[in-house]
Design a protein around this nucleic acid. Structure first.
Lengths: 107, 107
DNA sequence: TGAGTATATAATTATTTGATTATTTAATAA
DNA sequence: TTATTAAATAATCAAATAATTATATACTCA
């Protein structure tokens, strides 16, 4: 696949509001699926499928910790993604509002 | 529309191989529709519809010159798009190979 | 072991999208 | 005026996509 095609595929991944939000969230902090579900207010399978696309596209990596799966960004080789993220407002408030965070449910 | 939604929409526009190539071409030089059709080897209505999406998304602007319509990039307010374009290989060879260029058909 | 929880997968559906074909509009030039 | 050329629009269709619902897998703990 040509470089331009690969970049178009990455842009397509970021071309969905939910996925772009997920990437912006992960830019702040590693998160588990249930936390992302909680923040984005959608179904677990919906998030799970977005995560698979992001993983297949090489934008995130997963780490299993017990029964939880944590996702983190993997964009060292894609500096332009970091540029895009610079333009996105901080998602810290959404992360702070996690009930999980308070209850330490995923730790 | 939220900023993150607007950025997702821009990414979606760039998330198509043909449109990303068009934007990369316009990054080198203003081009008319017939030239883009020539380079991308697809139909005129196909390009015309891609140009409309890019125009609606605010990524390009058009200038009519006689019976030709020239498009050029309009991304001053979107620095991250410039960052993406930096990662794309030069499209100069494709522009140089234009028959138009030799014959000066669009001038 | 079995219950409970977290996540993934599969199947389905409605919507969106990219491309094609046919037609229309607009500009130029004979 | 008519013919020609460039581009846009409209209609159509197949493929891709995001979301939902239902089910399966995997891990933990009593």
């Amino acid at each position: 696949m040509s470089q331009i095609e690969e970049m178009a595929d990455v842009c397509k991944l970021l071309g969905d509001k939910n996925r772009l939000t997920i990437v912006a969230l992960l830019n702040e902090k590693e998160l588990c699926v249930c936390e992302i579900v909680d923040i984005l207010q959608t179904s677990q399978p919906n998030i799970s499928q977005h995560m698979r696309k992001l993983k297949d596209g090489g934008l995130v990596k997963e780490t299993k910790k017990g029964q939880w799966v944590y996702y983190s960004l993997r964009i060292q080789d894609k500096p332009y993604v970091a540029e895009i993220l610079k333009q996105i407002p901080s998602q810290q408030d959404k992360i702070n509002s996690l009930v999980c965070e308070e209850n330490e449910c995923c730790t």
